[in-house]
Write a protein that binds this DNA or RNA. Structure first.
Lengths: 227, 227
DNA sequence: AAGTACGAAATCGTATACGATAACTATGGC
DNA sequence: GCCATAGTTATCGTATACGATTTCGTACTT
């Protein structure tokens, strides 16, 4: 349940069109890592696997292309798009901005129950650090932020956050693995963020903290990459 | 030239696929106002107009749907999506955030030539106010901001800005017409923004000013709508 | 042996065809 | 006269088919 793509229009699946199904199916495979970056997405093959024809599959792939999850080349085909360092920077920078805004907008709407829930998740993350469970850590990290954003009053902004997450999904938990100490820091920042929200800090402070939380991960990655 | 949709991948049209052409054609018609909100986009009709078949047209429409320019209903069809007050709020709020970030990121890269160009555009906007030419005013407004963002180092953020603009395009110049005095104020804010950039103000200050510039337009609209 | 040219295979791009669904219209019952 | 219902039409959704383009392998030339 923690392994699904995030942010797909989560309505009931009443009478989904095949293109929707294909979209969801391929997206899920990319996000959960079945299709790794560079994987070649052949329309005919996917169509056969799903039992559909190529037209809806093509539509699904183009949609995923628009979200940046696959790279599509005319008359050549689609591949799952990896994220090179530059793309990673762009994505993280954008995320830092939209997450900052999302957090600031959500903060006044987060009740004590949600705070407690987030805190519990964060506690579990701490435990993951001790047992060294990066996969679960990353999933919990998503849960943590989901609680924060759950009530974001602006769906457009929330959508941008989700897109960024999915974009990063294929290299999930990379920073946890590759940047020593960052995860510990991240957990501390989470707690600090919760306290700011609890104390009803002004929007600007919360925005900056949330933005910094993401930016710090990026910086840690960049510093490491430079070595 | 000022009337075209903004931000479409502006590479040479070498061997564009029909779905690309259809996308561009329909998008242009929406942005320039040929297809007004509520206009019913019948696949077969558009296909015939363009001389294509329905499949690429369908793909184009779905793509426009993803950008929020059209509303698509299963087994019913597509209509050009108007923006109701709520949508307008969401869009403007999102724009204020991404434009703020885009401006702050671009500021250090804007040279004196670009500043002069922007200032000239802003001067012309002033003249439009005297002659009461809202259409040209809006076009110039786009030009002004284009100069500012031209060198935004993060293409993802720039893309988000463009999307917001296209989203607003169908009700372009509305605030100029409907909110008295706002346009004058806007021109003044432009000049203030230019001075901040010239003086190499810190990123935070610039971001806040740019964000406020957009937020003020939204507020003016909301205040007016409430009456 | 390396490079080039040609041909075959794979794959995409789109037209056409037909089935499915929803909107519309006309008819009959109350 | 108004509402419910059946039939018709419009439109979408997708399968299939085929042409277009690229890629890959092979044979030929130097």
């Amino acid at each position: 349940m923690t392994e699904t793509a995030v942010g797909s229009s989560a309505v009931g699946n009443a009478a989904q069109s095949k293109s929707e199904q294909a979209y969801a199916a391929v997206k899920a495979r990319i996000v959960e890592g079945t299709y790794t970056p560079g994987y070649r997405l052949v329309l005919a093959k996917i169509a056969e696997d799903l039992g559909f024809s190529v037209v809806p599959v093509r539509e699904a792939i183009r949609r995923l292309e628009a979200e940046g999850l696959v790279k599509f080349e005319r008359n050549v085909g689609a591949t799952v798009s990896g994220i090179d360092p530059t793309e990673y920077l762009y994505t993280m920078q954008t995320l830092s901005i939209v997450e900052g805004a999302a957090t600031a907008l959500s903060a006044p709407l987060i009740d004590s129950v949600a705070i407690a829930r987030a805190r519990a998740v964060n506690q579990e993350m701490r435990e993951c650090l001790e047992h060294f469970d990066p996969v679960r850590f990353t999933a919990l990290n998503q849960d943590f932020h989901s609680v924060l954003f759950e009530h974001c009053p602006n769906p457009h902004i929330l959508d941008l956050v989700h897109r960024g997450w999915n974009r990063l999904a294929s290299l999930r938990s990379s920073t946890f693995r590759f940047v020593p100490g960052r995860a510990q820091e991240s957990v501390r920042e989470h707690e600090a963020l919760l306290q700011l929200i609890e104390n009803a800090a002004d929007a600007d402070t919360i925005e900056k903290a949330a933005r910094q939380h993401r930016a710090a991960t990026l910086d840690a990655y960049l510093a490491q990459a430079k070595q």
